[in-house]
Nucleic acid binder design. Structure first.
Lengths: 201, 201
DNA sequence: TTTTTGAACATATGACGTTTTTAGTCGAAT
DNA sequence: ATTCGACTAAAAACGTCATATGTTCAAAAA
């Protein structure tokens, strides 16, 4: 078995164990014995516990990114793309247990490593949403707004949407809420009269 | 001194002490001695420590509500009202230290008492924003949207905005961010063509 | 009667020493 | 190059005890 394959196997079991017990309670002997190996087997492939956990988080973050990237060309309709972005993120967040837990748990939040991972993810999300906005502007579906600020504002609104997904156990009506939020973001609340005044300036 | 006046004095000092040390570290002797009284003096006015803290939070939440209520008629311009709502909330959140801390601290979050306080505040905010939307619709500044769902979506976006205020120490460009978010919410991202298609249906 | 107090009680908390667990190392075996 | 088992040092878990602090109450003061 190749080096990377072995690492993947370890990461796979580790993901399970960390998900079950959390970072602190999870122990390396447990992970190793699932692979029918001794504990020090793991140290041939990883430097320490934190590096394994980091790899698990990276895997989960990559999962999020790759699924979200797909939304940039999931459809020809811009609104559909953004809808997919929201719904898919809501779904995957439930599955990447360790990543979600990292957001919550106090003693992990502050570690620089994880802070980086998080801002990486935010950067990638920003790029994906920018891509969606740009192609929407090109196709004439969207107004000619500054894509950067628009993406930033969109992701701000998203954060409010995701917050209960991260913290609460239940979160109902994900799709309905997403659609209403998209209505707001797409068509705005201003009346036609108010719009015309602004656009003529 | 009247009963309620004494209670207010206690709450006032308690607010200070809790803000300084947090719920756990704060002690009643400290609060009492600031008033030149013995520790058990407090027990004539409050049943226990939690009740004092609860009163402090209530005071802070009332402060938030009253300042936010003001925004419902702070101006004739709907956009200005919503802008005030955002900026004022951002400002007050920095001042009501104990309330903000309650949101963060793990062992307080789950207490039913505080959960209620929080959902009370959310209900009130919902009402205020509904009022703003209704008067905006009436004056012709806003489209004839369902005020309930619009308020919900607006507050969702707000939550994303407030999140860094609660968790991070610094948060730059509050006003600029607020304005950009308001642009999004007011005029939407859809092009004129896309709008017409929807509105004609 | 209303308000305040000080002593007494009960519970919570932090400090400390002991035991157990576990992350991480290393030389040997294959 | 890969895996193991024994080893170490550090951390976590546990129990205990002294102290601090929340809470009660009967009695004093206003």
């Amino acid at each position: 078995m190749s080096d990377t394959e072995t690492r993947e196997k370890i990461i796979c079991e580790a993901e399970d164990v960390f998900a079950k017990y959390g970072y602190r309670r999870a122990n390396l002997e447990d992970i190793a014995s699932r692979l029918g190996k001794g504990k020090s087997f793991i140290y041939y492939y990883f430097r320490n516990k934190e590096e394994i956990f980091s790899a698990v988080l990276r895997k989960e973050a990559d999962r999020l990114i790759s699924e979200l990237s797909g939304t940039a060309d999931s459809s020809k309709d811009t609104r559909k793309k953004l809808r997919d972005f929201i719904i898919i993120k809501a779904k995957i967040l439930r599955e990447v247990v360790n990543y979600s837990r990292m957001i919550k748990e106090e003693y992990l939040k502050e570690k620089v490593l994880f802070e980086n991972l998080r801002s990486d993810l935010e950067k990638k999300e920003f790029e994906i949403v920018c891509t969606i906005f740009n192609s929407g502007i090109e196709s004439g579906e969207l107004r000619k707004l500054d894509p950067g600020w628009t993406a930033e504002s969109f992701l701000t609104a998203m954060k409010g949407f995701e917050f209960p997904l991260m913290t609460k156990d239940s979160f109902e009506n994900v799709e309905k809420r997403a659609d209403k939020l998209l209505d707001l973001i797409f068509y705005g609340i201003a009346s036609e009269d108010a719009r015309k005044k602004i656009i003529n300036n």
